[in-house]
């Protein structure tokens, strides 16, 4: 059986979870078995049953209040109980913030080989092999998992969500839940914004924008596109933008469908964080900017003139103007 960890926040299933559900269902099909899901914390039952659309037959729901806040240690022990009770041989996570904290713990607990950052379905014809990104997106590696239980942590935005029909059986699971040792004191979330790691479109600004006062240019375009905003490292270092927007080798790695880079030179460390984007657009006034080599579309021009035109055209396309 293939067990999929369904990540949620404040009772809402995260987008990344639909990807792992679709992926898990496909892996199960490949192995000639079924996929089931596990959800920790309070989520409305109808939302859980609806997850059947993504190919899981059954959802194990551990609705203990202590699980409404994330603690990797507590979550791991609960998932291990579900996995053992259900006899899971393959366990799937999203390689998002929570997945990065739990999957390795579970791997150590169950002595299960883990491939973190998988980008494709496993090859199961001859052993169990999983392709993952390495060298910060500059290459990939195929890993063989040698253990009986296998854990895959799928990179966000690397697998197409497939939505069908059907409802999942929701089975309450009675787990032993420890008291968390990590106490959450505060959560600061920029409300209403698209989280960068989940965004399908990202508009990103670099030092070419000259200063924080000019960011309306980026924000307006992002708003018109329903996109998240990002930035290069010097922009975050100089506090023009919050550091959680910094993408690249030492920042966040993202793989949106569309990445629009404005006034960013395209240093190799920046590319490492964005080169898995499906389509890259580069806007830079210097035709020699290295970013153009990694781009699909480019405009050589002054961002201050070009971006408002693009924003207008997007608004027109979307019927916003």
């Amino acid at each position: 059986m293939v067990l999929v960890f369904i990540d949620q926040a404040d009772g809402h299933v995260k987008k990344a979870s639909y990807e792992v559900l679709s992926y898990g269902a496909k892996v199960a099909e490949q192995l000639g078995t079924t996929a089931e899901g596990v959800v920790l914390g309070a989520v409305p039952a109808d939302q859980l049953a609806a997850l059947g659309k993504y190919g899981v037959k059954k959802i194990h729901h551990v609705a203990n209040d202590a699980l409404n806040h994330f603690d990797a240690q507590v979550f791991t022990k609960v998932i291990a109980q579900v996995a053992q009770a259900a006899g899971s041989k393959v366990i799937i996570f999203s390689n998002n913030v929570d997945g990065k904290a739990i999957a390795p713990r579970l791997a150590a607990r169950l002595r299960a080989g883990l491939v973190p950052g998988a980008v494709a379905l496993p090859e199961t014809a001859n052993g169990f092999m999983v392709k993952k990104n390495v060298f910060s997106g500059k290459a990939f590696a195929t890993y063989t998992i040698n253990s009986d239980i296998k854990i895959i942590s799928l990179n966000p935005n690397s697998y197409q969500v497939t939505e069908g029909s059907g409802t999942a059986e929701v089975a309450p699971f009675n787990a032993t839940v420890d008291a968390p040792k990590v106490k959450i004191k505060a959560v600061n979330k920029a409300s209403g914004e698209v989280p960068l790691s989940e965004a399908e479109v990202v508009v990103s600004g670099g030092r070419g924008l000259k200063g924080p006062d000019n960011w309306a240019l980026i924000e307006n375009l992002a708003h018109a596109l329903g996109a998240a905003t990002a930035c290069s490292r010097p922009v975050a270092d100089e506090h023009w933008r919050p550091h959680h927007e910094h993408v690249g080798q030492t920042g966040l790695t993202i793989a949106p469908n569309l990445y629009i880079a404005v006034g960013i030179s395209g240093a190799i460390q920046h590319l490492a964080g964005v080169n898995r984007s499906k389509v890259i657009v580069v806007i830079n006034k210097d035709p020699e900017a290295p970013f153009f080599k990694a781009a699909d579309y480019g405009i050589v021009g002054d961002a201050f003139e070009v971006i408002p035109k693009i924003t207008e055209a997007v608004k027109k396309l979307k019927g916003m103007a």
């Binding site: 883990l114 290459a139 890993y143 080599k293």
Partner: peptide, 17 residues
């Protein structure tokens, strides 16, 4: 628990338009 079987490089971009 795991071993690397092989490495590869992503396909080159077609070029910028």
């Amino acid at each position: 628990l795991t071993t690397v079987s092989s490495f590869g490089l992503p396909p080159a971009k077609a070029g910028v338009k």
